[in-house]
Structure formats: structure tokens, C-alpha cells
Amino acid sequence: MTIDPWRITGQSEIDSYVGSRVELAVLLANRLTATSAHGRPVTPPSSGDERLAAISAGRAESGRPPGPLTSALTAADADRLAEVAAELRPMFGAGPRIVEAAAGLNRLLVRHGAVPNLHGDPDRPLVLAFHRPDAGLVDAWAADMGTALAMVIGVGQAARLGACQAGNCCLVFFDTTRNASRRFCDLSCQNRAKASAYRARRRA
């Protein structure tokens, strides 16, 4: 399977499932583990209720309002997902550390029982998921996100799992540009970095 047909080229979304799970990993890493964003320190949520609210708010802001699965999340699930997010974060911006990061990802896949599996309802087409049909919600999310990241890395596209290069920002992102040239989490950080570089040149 290749991630190429997804949004990177604008062709048929054969791998939209992979892309959506990578974006879910981005959301959880940013909402549950980030300690700085856009030049300012931030405090990650520390309680299950706060983490649950952060996940729901993040999905709503990304255009994915809470569905049945998100609504089924509990505060205890959110605490476990924060641990999963912390394990997934090293995949982003890994650079030469990718082999070490991948070893941690392999352990996560085993622990959460990742396995290719066809899921579907009687009146809907089958879809390929990466968790057992009987997996709990946290294991299902972890297996799906971990496998999606592994697939991106496994086709030589690890560079698309980016970390913001602006100062005082540890947000991560999935780079879907054609030439994998994205360096910042958003335009505000890009502008901050340009302004900082300009001031440095003026001082020099």
C-alpha cells in the first residue's frame, strides 16, 4: 500500500484511512503532550477530564465533530491516550533518530495488538483497519495510529512526519505538500521564524 494517492497528489483517496489516523496522532500529540506552542509555553492537560475535553475540542476544531467513538471515550481512556501520544511523539521530526524511534513504535504495535483486519456493517462496504474487531477503544486507536505512522515511515516518507522548527514551539504536523518542504506547524510560526531571522541579520 502507498500513501501517494492520498491528499499529497489529490488523486483518489485510497489511503484516506491512513491519513486520518496520522492526523489523529498529530492531534493527540499536540493536545496532550505539547509544552510550547507558537512561541509560548503551554501546560498539557493533567487530569482525565481535561484530556477528554482537549481531545473533543481538537477534533471539533479540525472539522471532525465527536462521533460515536469519541463520545464513548472516558476520562480513564483519555489518560491512557496521553501515554500513547507521548510514545508516538518521537516519530515526528525524528530525522537521524528514526531507527531508535521506530523501535519504540514496534513495541507499541505489539502491546496494543495491531493487526490488519477488515471491518464493516451489513449495509456498508468493508474497510481495512489495523486493530482486532474486539479491541477496546484505546487499543484500537493506538493500533490504528501506530500502524499508520509505520506505513508512512515504511514507504520512505518519514520526513513528512514533521516537528515545527520555529523557536519555542513543539507542535507536530503531517506534511502533505508535494515536495515535503513544510517546516512549520502553521503560518504564524513561519512568520515568527522569518521575523527572527531578519532581526538576526540586522544585528549582524
Rank of each mutant, 00 (worst) to 15 (best):
R89Y: 05
R89W: 03
R89L: 10
A94M: 08
I98E: 04
V99I: 14
V99A: 15
A101L: 13
G104A: 08
G104S: 11
G104M: 04
L105G: 04
R107K: 15
L108K: 11
L109S: 06
V110C: 05
H112C: 10
A114G: 11
A114P: 07
V115Q: 13
V115F: 00
P116T: 06
P116N: 08
G120F: 06
D121F: 05
F130C: 13
H131L: 05
H131Q: 08
R132D: 05
R132H: 11
R132G: 05
P133A: 13
D134N: 12
V138G: 10
D139S: 12
W141P: 00
D144V: 02
G146Y: 02
T147R: 09
A150M: 08
A150I: 03
V152K: 02
I153V: 15
I153N: 04
V155G: 02
A158V: 02
A158L: 00
A158H: 00
A159C: 02
A159V: 12
R160F: 00
L161T: 04
G162D: 02
C164S: 06
C164M: 04
A166G: 15
A166V: 10
A166S: 15
G167E: 15
N168W: 05
C169R: 11
V172T: 08
V172A: 06
D175N: 03
